[in-house]
């Protein structure tokens, strides 16, 4: 059968071959366009964020934007210092990572080195469900469950606070860190584990002294991507952390993050080209630059551990 189709192909008239080749070319071009759309989206993000925010910097200097300590662009006199928003983002993200990194790493080490297959089969879907909960639901949970719960212990805690938002955000990031770290740990070859066990090590000693360092670039990539996720998270902080831009690193305070500010302005009336409109693009530009840096570092680290094994 192979022989007959081969001879047919050889005997096919040149026109048929040309059509076939054209068809192949066409399909490849269509698929290429699909792939290129990703590049187009990236370019579009940069261009749109750049052009829509450029107007702002005609009236506000970059120096004022990055060093000003007051953010009140919609009031008179307008203040354009982005530090309060950055401060809110840093504080909530720090709280989130304070929760997510220890818990996520512990779960990853436990699942990869200690747990039996049976336990793993049960735990992984739970983590996936946790990762699938919509952020607006987490926001609701932070505002109406976690904050009242914390207020029992901390009676002075305001209704909107960075602590509850950060804690819930941390739990939200746990599945991402644990699953990426576990992947990295599982790609550590068994030979290394056996070498350690053969030296008389316990599970914990093997996990901590051999597996964790061997998987470290993968694990740290999960941390970095976790930071990026925390910085970009929007709904939890807009619902539970408050909308008041303040320079404060106190978790018990209420404060606005960069993302929360964008949401707050978007909820109001927003004419194209107005100052408010320009500021959210400027804030968005800073946001996307920050996450871009973290993502690049994170993926670089991830590639490194892929190359190692």
């Amino acid at each position: 059968m192979t022989i007959s189709s081969l001879s047919e192909a050889i005997a096919a008239p040149p026109r048929k071959q040309v059509i076939r080749r054209l068809k192949e070319r066409f399909i490849e071009s269509v698929l290429f366009l699909c792939a290129f759309s990703c590049v187009a989206v990236t370019i579009a993000i940069m261009v749109i964020l750049g052009t829509e925010s450029i107007g702002l910097f005609k009236t506000v200097s970059l120096w004022e934007f990055f060093t000003g300590t007051e953010w009140a662009p919609l009031f008179e006199p307008a203040k354009y210092g982005i530090l309060p928003l950055v401060c809110g983002t840093v504080t909530t993200s720090a709280i989130a990572l304070f929760v997510a990194i220890p818990i996520g790493t512990t779960i990853a080490l436990f699942l990869s080195e200690f747990a039996s297959q049976k336990v793993r089969v049960w735990v992984k879907p739970i983590l996936e469900i946790l990762a699938g909960v919509p952020t607006v639901v987490y926001g609701y949970f932070a505002l109406l469950f976690v904050t009242p719960l914390l207020q029992i212990v901390l009676p002075d805690l305001p209704g909107f606070n960075m602590l509850a938002a950060g804690l819930v955000m941390g739990i939200m990031i746990v599945p991402q860190i644990s699953s990426m770290s576990e992947d990295a740990m599982r790609s550590v070859p068994d030979e290394l584990r056996e070498g350690s066990y053969a030296a008389g090590a316990t599970k914990l000693q093997t996990a901590w002294n051999v597996v964790f360092p061997a998987a470290f670039s993968g694990v740290s990539s999960s941390y970095i991507l976790g930071i990026s996720r925390a910085v970009g998270e929007t709904m939890i902080v807009s619902i539970a952390a408050g909308l008041q831009p303040t320079i404060s690193f106190n978790p018990m305070d209420s404060a606005a993050t960069m993302t929360a500010y964008i949401v707050q302005v978007s909820l109001g009336d927003l004419p194209h080209g107005s100052t408010g409109y320009q500021t959210i693009f400027a804030v968005g530009f800073l946001l996307v630059s920050m996450t871009l840096i973290f993502n690049t570092i994170g993926h670089w680290l991830k590639r490194r551990y892929r190359e190692q094994y």
Binding site: I45, E52, G232, T259, I262, V263, N295
Partner: peptide, 17 residues
């Protein structure tokens, strides 16, 4: 690089776009 980075862009940035 673009595909991996797009996956990490905060969703609100897509909103701005």
């Amino acid at each position: 690089i673009n595909v991996t980075n797009l996956a990490g862009v905060p969703s609100i940035v897509y909103g701005l776009l």
